[in-house]
Simulated assay, not measured.
Amino acid sequence: MFIKTTNPTFKNFGELVCDSLDRDFSKDINIKNKSIKKLKLTSDNSTFLKVNKGVVMILVSLDGKDIKSFIINRIINLKKGIYFNLISISDESEVSIISKDEFKSINLKEEYTYTKISSSLNIDQIYTKFYQEKGTNYSFAGESHPYWELTYVDKGNLSTNVDGKEYNLKQGDLIFYAPFQFHTQATLNNISSYLTINFKMDSNDYEVLCNKVFTLERESYNIISKLIEELSNDDIYSNDLSICYLKQLIIHTARLKNTYFQSKPTTHMRQTYENSLLNEILLFIDEHIYEKLSINTLCSHFCISPSMIHSLFKKNMDNTVKNYINELKLSKSKELIKNTSYTISEISDMLGFSSIHYFSKKFKTSFGISPTEYSKSIYD
């Protein structure tokens, strides 16, 4: 995540100039570079920087080795003895600088390069979408085509031959076929239901996605459930959401380190029950977030055992109940600090923390900044 120069941690390197300066900036420089090989050193206490156009990242260091990065969102005055340089996040930028320094430069051991946030996997279009049920001994002779295809087995089993190699898919398994990759499909002595999607994708991850069977983990299963739902809808933006969920599914699948997982795929009925119960629990926690919540409170209210609620959160949230409640309370505390006039102590009490010291410690652990520093940063 980016950090702005209004963040309290920037005070180690310089200060904000909130008022307009009663002086003309002596030099305007245009910046296009996305990488730097050198750092400049300030030897004067008056090195002012102002961004006139674009988005600019300043790289700063106290020793020329440990580099921190900030997005310049105010006029700044760098301290004496600070190493710095600038990178343009936008296509090009303009910065005004005033300083009496003739900056000395040092070479970096390794070039610092900014990697822009952009998509490396693009899905332009979904051509076809089929959810079909096939009887026993169904056999498809095979095909190849100039687009990607995925098949997900929702029930039963499926056999597929890809470029002469046989693969067997069971419930919860997924396989990808690359463009022009010949493949057949057949059921294995039972009724099988599966989803098939043909789509146009710009990707070179053939080795990651192809010629293997993926058994979906719980999070990916939830994504494909949403994908199936949106593919069946005609609501506004359903097509956009379908492509988003398909892309998310592919990314999650590509990240899988192992073909099989200890978490066994659940049945659709079981997952529907778990989703409904979990949603009710999450809603209850949200509505009672200002109270002292415990696992026993939740178990008593929903008539379930502690082991069941632990399993529910672990499988579907990849989190513990206690952590989830604490994270939600801390998120609420940020909203209260930002949008109300309550003191830090009052907010700590409102959210049921045992002490303001404990609250401050948890807040800083989660967000890297104390509640007091966060409050000040909002109004700087």
Results as ranks from 00 to 15, higher is better:
A178Q: 07
K212G: 09
E133F: 05
I285F: 01
F13G: 02
Q185W: 04
L86I: 04
Y138F: 15
Y374S: 12
I325D: 00
H357C: 06
V153F: 03
R23C: 06
I72Q: 12
S159H: 02
E346G: 01
I76M: 07
L336K: 03
A178V: 07
L39W: 09
L227R: 00
D349R: 13
E111C: 07
K34C: 08
L249T: 06
G352V: 00
L16F: 03
K247N: 12
T372H: 14
I89G: 07
K40T: 09
M350C: 02
Y379Q: 09
P306L: 02
S294D: 08
L174V: 09
N319V: 05
N161L: 09
I82T: 02
G54R: 02
S232I: 07
S341K: 15
I224D: 00
N85D: 09
V153C: 13
L195Q: 12
L62I: 14
E92Q: 10
S370Q: 05
Q262Y: 15
N157W: 10
S300D: 00
I281F: 01
P371V: 07
K38C: 11
L78S: 12
I3N: 11
S159I: 05
D22C: 03
L249K: 11
F353V: 08
L39K: 11
E291F: 00
S311D: 04
I126L: 06
S355G: 04
Y237H: 13
L216T: 05
N326W: 01
R218F: 06
K226E: 11
I236P: 03
K32I: 08
L283W: 00
N296P: 00
I29R: 11
E274N: 01
N85W: 01
I3Y: 14
T113S: 10
K129D: 02
P146Y: 07
I295N: 11
I75Y: 07
L231I: 07
V60P: 09
F10G: 02
E217C: 03
E111N: 10
I281M: 01
L282M: 01
L188E: 15
S375R: 14
Y358K: 06
S43H: 14
L256Y: 10
K129A: 06
I123E: 02
V51C: 01
F214M: 04
L78I: 03
E133V: 15
T47V: 13
